[in-house]
């Protein structure tokens, strides 16, 4: 009606949650555009699952607002938020078949039978679950269960997708396959996607942007590349990038850090290092080194033959600098 364009997507404004005297989430601000996939990343207890539950309406914030496509949904009950959620445990109804797991929600909302059947069939086909449609969750493999959980979120055609560590119960190979599938299915559609994980590799592979949380506070939000190249602080630098970044002792109020993949052996001089362990990984090798600054990690080409002891160097441009007290990155 009015010419004002309503902000699309999901917006969190100063979202806060207290449990007793404990501040679980401390004033979170962020937005997710339609079709954007945002990963909430952090160690356990950082507030990422709390955030997801607040967005779904399963818990109530102590302060702040949640907006979806311009509507304030902060006080709306979960049933009216039209959210498609995948639980870490999948939360499939054990007494119902795959088919009925998908249809139950639509039956509750009184959709016509033909439409339910058509929607279920298309989603089952999309996720290649057609042969399993009359099985119950107990008769499915882990990967199939995960796909049923995904199908249940998809079939309701929600305004928003929420995924809570959906792959933490799967083995590595399956996780890799499903990552691609998930990206094709969810991201790039009309809905915002919020994906909670503690696995930085998963976050980097799936998300358009990553929000790193630590102790209930947002540390940094940005593309995987920004987080890797320009971490906002020492925590993000340590959390993003595997193997972990190497940190030098504080010097004149400044902490310097170098990523393992930016280290190189020098012909002479440099930081003296002795090889403790060598992990050969095919294309590359991971070295555990003993240096005057403690145990360092280095990654280099798998074919390079290294001496037992050598000097370490790195291009100064690759070095990251942080303020000693606050941990903030210096420019």
């Amino acid at each position: 009606m009015s010419g004002v364009q309503r902000p699309q997507g999901l917006v969190l404004e100063g979202l806060e949650r207290r449990v007793g005297s404990n501040l679980v989430l401390d004033g979170l601000n962020l937005s997710v555009a339609p079709g954007e996939c945002l990963a909430l990343l952090g160690p356990s207890g950082c507030g990422k699952t709390t955030t997801l539950r607040l967005i779904a309406g399963l818990d109530q914030p102590s302060a702040g607002r949640i907006r979806l496509d311009g509507d304030d949904i902060t006080r709306q009950p979960p049933s009216r938020r039209e959210v498609g959620m995948v639980f870490q445990s999948y939360a499939l109804y054990p007494h119902l078949t795959v088919e009925r797991n998908l249809s139950l929600g639509m039956e509750l909302r009184g959709l016509p039978r033909e439409r339910i059947a058509a929607q279920i069939s298309s989603v089952l086909e999309l996720l290649q679950l057609e042969p399993q449609r009359r099985r119950r969750p107990a008769e499915l493999s882990g990967g199939q269960r995960q796909r049923v959980a995904l199908a249940r979120a998809l079939v309701r055609q929600p305004r928003l997708f929420l995924l809570d560590e959906p792959m933490s119960n799967l083995d590595a190979q399956l996780r890799e396959d499903l990552r691609a599938e998930l990206r094709l299915l969810l991201c790039g559609g009309p809905q915002p996607v919020v994906y909670v994980t503690h696995d930085q590799q998963e976050a980097m592979g799936l998300a358009d942007r990553i929000a790193v949380l630590h102790q209930g506070r947002l540390q940094q939000i940005g593309s995987p590349r920004e987080l890797y190249d320009q971490p906002a602080n020492l925590f993000v630098a340590g959390f993003i990038g595997r193997p972990r970044i190497n940190v030098l002792p504080a010097e004149a109020g400044c902490i310097r850090a170098v990523r393992p993949e930016h280290l190189e052996p020098l012909a002479e001089g440099g930081l003296p290092a002795r090889v403790l362990l060598r992990e050969w990984q095919g294309a590359s090798q991971l070295l555990q080194l003993e240096t005057p600054h403690g145990r360092w990690r280095m990654v280099c080409d798998g074919r390079v033959e290294l001496a037992e002891s050598f000097g370490l160097g790195w291009p100064p441009a690759r070095e990251l600098r942080f303020e000693a007290g606050s941990g903030r990155r210096l420019h």
């Binding site: 979960p78 049933s79 009216r80 639980f87 445990s89 939360a91 109804y93 509750l108 249940r152 309701r156």
Partner: peptide
């Protein structure tokens, strides 16, 4: 498990429906 009830609520189910269906 409680998350069954949470999933059910997210799909629009009321507590009375949860009693009957779950």
């Amino acid at each position: 498990p409680t998350d069954l009830y949470e999933a059910f609520a997210l799909e629009g189910g009321t507590p009375a429906q949860a009693l009957r269906r779950i």
